[in-house]
Design a protein around this nucleic acid. Structure first.
Length: 272
DNA sequence: ATGGTGGCACCGCCA
């Protein structure tokens, strides 16, 4: 059964619901995972989502900041939300697709929005960077406590706010001391990935020696010409699910849509 | 070399 899953940091779902509709119209992903929805649950545009083909929604939002959501054409078997660092931040939601969704075996989707971490890459002086590192540690410990069963079909997507490879940034040397590409973050992201045994699906399709970006700053005069991007958004699959991935699209053109998000959608196709 | 943009809340904070 073909199943496609998109992940996109939308930077306000209320402001950009028409861009989500455009993604839906043009690519018809079965599932759309959103980050930075920036809205409390009672103001989430559920009716619009249903109208453009996503009647099922798992949402975890808060006022003004953060917020994650999973929109789906197919029903969920269950939904859960995990809190980290006792902050009350809405940074994770997961949903299980099963028989009712047309799958023979259940598939769990984790949607994460990892803290950005502020500007100064020093946990001693920057509380936001300290929070980012603590979040990664806590998520890693959580993974270790909840190991994937052998054969479990899980996918973890989202804005992880870290570009781990040298080719995940426009200039490795110039970004070594820039939050999102510092060695400590890369190390901790690697620990999180290893704790779950996750496979970096994007890099199975785009070789690690090739540059790969999913985010371009709003602050560039011409984002496309300067192309100073970073790969902050990720698709990780459990070892059992990874071989089921049949395709990957990084929708670079979405950065040029009207009133764009600074992130673009990443769509993975599975034979699930 | 610095500052550049954008969203939301509510005129600062976060990215």
């Amino acid at each position: 059964m073909p199943l496609s899953i998109a992940t996109w940091n939308i930077n306000s779902v209320r402001l950009r619901i028409e861009l989500v509709a455009k993604l839906a119209r043009e690519h018809q992903p079965d599932v759309i995972c959103l980050q930075e929805t920036k809205t409390p649950d009672d103001r989430f545009p559920l009716k619009d989502a249903a109208k453009f083909g996503y009647p099922h929604a798992a949402i975890h939002g808060q006022k003004g900041y953060h917020g994650v959501a999973i929109l789906s054409k197919r029903p969920f078997e269950s939904v859960s939300r995990q809190g980290f660092c006792d902050m009350g931040d809405a940074r994770h939601i997961s949903a299980v697709l099963g028989r009712e969704a047309g799958l023979d075996a259940p598939l769990t989707i984790h949607n994460f929005y990892i803290p950005a971490g502020g500007d100064i890459p020093d946990p001693a002086v920057n509380e936001k960077f300290r929070h980012k590192l603590a979040f990664l540690d806590e998520a890693t410990a959580w993974e270790a406590l909840h190991p994937l069963a052998p054969g479990a079909r899980s996918i973890l997507v989202g804005d992880l706010n870290i570009a781990p490879l040298e080719t995940d940034v426009w200039s490795h040397k110039q970004l070594l001391d820039v939050v999102s590409h510092t060695p400590i973050e890369v190390e901790k992201l690697g620990a999180l990935q290893a704790a779950g045994g996750w496979v970096d699906v994007m890099r199975n399709f785009i070789p690690p020696q090739d540059k790969l970006f999913t985010w371009w700053s709003y602050r560039a005069a011409d984002w496309a010409a300067s192309n100073r991007g970073r790969r902050l958004d990720h698709v990780w699959a459990s070892p059992a699910l990874a071989p089921a991935a049949t395709g990957l699209t990084v929708l670079r053109e979405a950065r040029g849509w009207e009133r764009p998000s600074d992130h673009v959608p990443v769509i993975v196709s599975l034979d699930a």
